[in-house]
Design a protein around this nucleic acid. Structure first.
Lengths: 131, 131
DNA sequence: CAGGGCAATGTAATGCTATAACATTTGCAG
DNA sequence: CTGCAAATGTTATAGCATTACATTGCCCTG
């Protein structure tokens, strides 16, 4: 089902759907897709998602209340990830930028703010859709 | 009630509560506070919030599903605003950084992505709470 | 001053997102 | 085998947001 053998059945089912999706999926959209697999309750989805987020195989898009599979599940040491979300086609691009991370870290340092998690989401239109 | 004479009653009530709050307020928290002023339905709050967001007097924190008054309502030409959210005391600091904006604009330019709105939220602990 | 147009308002109902609480099962290390 | 930790299953509930429709107030124009 997926190249991640440590996952439980529910986790693998959820990840599989996220990987096959062309746009972010909400927890309830996942649930609808997975009813035929026997899943019945939102909590089953949320628990699987929590785990996938923990281990970096999925991301949550805060401005969409939706989830995607990590674009590069094998090299996810990086700190800050930014998401560019096309509001027309739903496609999401992941990228990171050390200059941005450094700049934010500098600001935090000066303020004495201790960051635990940074959200960065750019909404707009991708090249194809903007054309 | 507030130094923004163009606002309607509902808008002014909502802004007033946001300005007096020490932490972000959800739409329903606002509604609870404003029942004594005669407001009864979530939509009354959401409509006022929409307007306040439009004209830049309030901000929405996506990762919290909550709202704050703009920290500097008089100089809000700036592009990108970042929020540092203390998860312990709820305090939110607003700041912006041209280097970060430029960097994101560069990335967008290279990708052909046309941004309409950028969300940037840093969760963590403020200086006082981290001590 | 009448009437048209527009933004804001009021109200009810509904839909989507997320978690609490509790019982049970599974997998694995000792 | 036993006992613990993690995952699961289920029901109910809490929290966030919007749709639809009727009404009101106000400004502008004729």
């Amino acid at each position: 089902m997926s190249a991640h053998p440590d996952l439980t059945r529910n986790q693998a089912l959820v990840l599989d759907r996220l990987e096959k999706a062309e746009a972010p999926l909400s927890a309830y959209a996942l649930l609808d897709q997975l009813r035929e697999e026997g899943l019945r309750a939102p909590l089953q989805i949320y628990r699987a998602l929590d785990k996938l987020l923990d281990i970096g195989l999925a991301h949550r898009l805060e401005s969409l209340n939706a989830f995607i599979a990590c674009a590069r599940p094998h090299c996810h040491p990086s700190g800050l990830i930014a998401f560019a979300i096309c509001e027309r086609c739903g496609q999401v691009s992941e990228f990171s930028d050390d200059v941005v991370s450094d700049r934010l870290a500098d600001w935090a340092g000066r303020e004495g703010f201790v960051p635990t998690r940074t959200i960065m989401e750019i909404r707009g239109e991708c090249r194809a859709c903007a054309a």
